[in-house]
Design a protein around this nucleic acid. Structure first.
Lengths: 208, 208
DNA sequence: CCACCAGTACTGAACCGTCCAGTACACCAA
DNA sequence: TTGGTGTACTGGACGGTTCAGTACTGGTGG
């Protein structure tokens, strides 16, 4: 598919790419249409051919940037359901943390949070789809793991919220405030996920 | 103290108050010096008498806004250490959640996160002082409670991180993305704190 | 009295959105 | 392949607005 993108489609993609980078880096007010046009190596007129005004361009790049993130977080990775519950839990948790601590996701989160006062619809949409959807997907994974009999899950959603909260609270806050987009090191990933899974198991392991 | 604030000091306070509201509401780029002067009922010249330029005004209000928040979150509320461990834990958790879910704190967090790419020092400072400091204070409270014998705390700091993460992950993310500054309702507060304390106790209660 | 302040006008620059003359490109017909 | 036609694009300029920061006059509180 998309064998030969027409010139119009190419230009549109150039504009979207440049605008996405610019908005994610400088925010809405900090991004000028001239800068977008220059970064896209496109005349400003072409920008306005494709997008009515700055706000509609902003909305377009937000929707486009949210889509793959939502997709990735809500597509429950198939749980193998092996015989090692702790290992399976650790794998699920690592998947979640790595997926949500990606640089693009962090930048998108900062933009949505920073602009949530002026563009509350998009922050709300992201929360509904990506955040809540991701937790629901995690709850489903936990339910599958619980079928093995090692977990007692009276409320899978609450369990998912607590597992995610334990694993992500510290690194996510640090990333948000620090402004650093660097993904977690292997040691940090092991530390946060390992500690979270340990306490999760201590709370939810079925009585032997 | 501050018996008779001089006129200069009064004017400075007016400017700081107005600028704080404006920056918290509209962000750095979205706030104009004319708007600040008008909101402070002060001439623009007076603003520039007190602050060299917009950036220094921004830094001043950030430092001033961070101070009480840091103070509140790191001043460990005296733990009574009664005979009901679950009730004490619930009280500690409710204190934390209510302190951090205050509207001013939420607005400050959004501003720091949104501007963390352009003003990384302040986000980092807030993370170091308020976030990490708050967790350290919570860890200390937990240690005090553990002296009663009902808790087994191999690593109080990790325990504090997990308790805070379980209690705050969902409501904090919702507040950040939604843009709503409304504090949690009594039901929500009970729900999040109750569920967090329940799982925390399940993981950390000393073997009877 | 006089330093400070209000009010306002001003400068220089940035930005949004538009317009226009000329150019590159896609598509089709011969 | 060639030539032609319509559409998309370029580059730049421009009007109207906003903004950061300065200058100046006149008034007022301490």
């Amino acid at each position: 598919m998309d064998e030969t993108p027409s010139r119009t489609e190419r230009k549109r993609a150039q504009i979207m790419d440049a605008a996405t980078s610019a908005f994610l880096e400088h925010g809405y007010k900090g991004t000028s249409m001239d800068l977008v046009a220059a970064a896209a190596r496109v005349s400003k007129q072409t920008v306005y051919k494709h997008f009515a005004d700055k706000e509609q361009l902003f909305q377009a790049i937000l929707l486009a940037a949210m889509e793959p993130t939502v997709q990735r977080l809500t597509s429950a990775a198939p749980v193998t359901g092996g015989d090692d519950l702790a290992a399976d839990l650790l794998a699920v948790t690592r998947n979640l943390v790595q997926a949500i601590m990606r640089p693009e996701v962090l930048r998108l989160r900062r933009l949505l949070i920073g602009e949530s006062a002026r563009f509350p619809l998009f922050g709300g949409a992201y929360y509904d789809q990506s955040f809540s959807g991701g937790l629901a997907a995690l709850a489903k994974q936990l339910s599958v793991l619980a079928e093995g009999g090692g977990l007692r899950l009276p409320d899978p959603l609450v369990a998912a919220e607590h597992l995610a909260g334990m694993a992500l609270w510290v690194p996510m806050n640090r990333a948000m405030f620090t402004g650093s987009d660097q993904p977690l090191s292997a040691d940090e990933l092991d530390h946060y996920c390992g500690a979270a899974v340990r306490d999760f198991l201590a709370a939810y392991a079925a009585a032997a």
